[in-house]
Design a protein around this nucleic acid. Sequence first.
DNA 1: CAGAATTATGCACTCGGTGCAAATCAATGC
DNA 2: GCATTGATTTGCACCGAGTGCATAATTCTG
Lengths: 194, 194
Amino acid sequence: MASAPNLRERTRRAVRAEIAATAMRLFEEQGFDATTVDQIAAAASISRRSFFHYFGTKEDLVLGDTEALGESVRAALEARPAEESAWTAIRAAFMTLRSTEDSADDLLLARLHHDAPSLRAKHLEKHLRWQELLAPDIQRRLGLPETETPDPRARAFVAAALACLDAALNAWCESGGELDPVRLFDDAIEAIRA
Amino acid sequence: MASAPNLRERTRRAVRAEIAATAMRLFEEQGFDATTVDQIAAAASISRRSFFHYFGTKEDLVLGDTEALGESVRAALEARPAEESAWTAIRAAFMTLRSTEDSADDLLLARLHHDAPSLRAKHLEKHLRWQELLAPDIQRRLGLPETETPDPRARAFVAAALACLDAALNAWCESGGELDPVRLFDDAIEAIRA
DNA sequence: CAGAATTATGCACTCGGTGCAAATCAATGC
DNA sequence: GCATTGATTTGCACCGAGTGCATAATTCTG
């Protein structure tokens, strides 16, 4: 579906994919910070300037399309029945993320996040963005009145849920993929609410 | 206390304070991102290179000493009675932060945080650091066994508490200092645990 | 006051990122 | 098939945050 609109779009996607692949190879070899954009561009046979036409920042290479993913989570959240509690609804919405990820190279991504401060920073900023996206629906489910700017309680709720998600994924990676991420997530929530 | 050990230390502190003051003035006038380090250095009658001897990054000007503050919170947390629950203990530890802050220019700081993405990023990284600092004590209070690397549940707990703190302070700032930050914080916790 | 230790400064450099203008190349109408 | 149009590629010059290094100025110590 939507495979070949025209040559332009096809090559654009292909080039983008190859840049990302090349970059990941380099990151794996030398680490994220030690790899420069010039190296990536050279390895992908592209000019430095063109690289920045495909990816706005170096971090974008490893942190996919934040906005699109956030929107999909929001859609999943709002698709849940209205009577569902905030926790069960957001839990279900997060579950939709699992399908897209391939556990094979997820460990690599996690390892990158570990030693690259700039990556962690952008990752957290992504969460801030999601916070704004998911807060309105959660606000409804918490029984709070609608407001122009999200209620701090809704914001805190979403941030806490994201914190549980991060902690779970982090522990899952540190275990080398052994532990069950869903179980870790549920345990984290349990710890907070107890 | 510890006022004048020698001239070196005294001038150092004085210069540092004046750099910070000058910078805040410029930030207030032009915004954080629009103010360059060269401007700050020039306005403080100091060389650009010397600026970086006083502050490692531009963000450090507005985000005080992360490590020291984190340590003080950790000390406050560990000073709480061992039987106290994780929530009440961490709440009490956070309260010790209130005394140091002067509500007058806190609103300015919050406004800076708002339109400066790099500041928000560093702020969140600070929280990550605190997470590691506070997790061990919380882990004990949650009745979890000791581990070398913190239990994800403890990490999630601390992150959630920090999220509540941030949401509360954020709402407090947006209200122009009208709302009660403690009340906001407690309400945020309540929303999560309900 | 002389020598050791800090601190201040200038300089050159790296790296991420952006604006601009010229060149290249695909899509479209004729 | 060809010219025009519009997007893409590229090079170039530039900026701003940091860093390493060597030198000069200054404070502390004997």
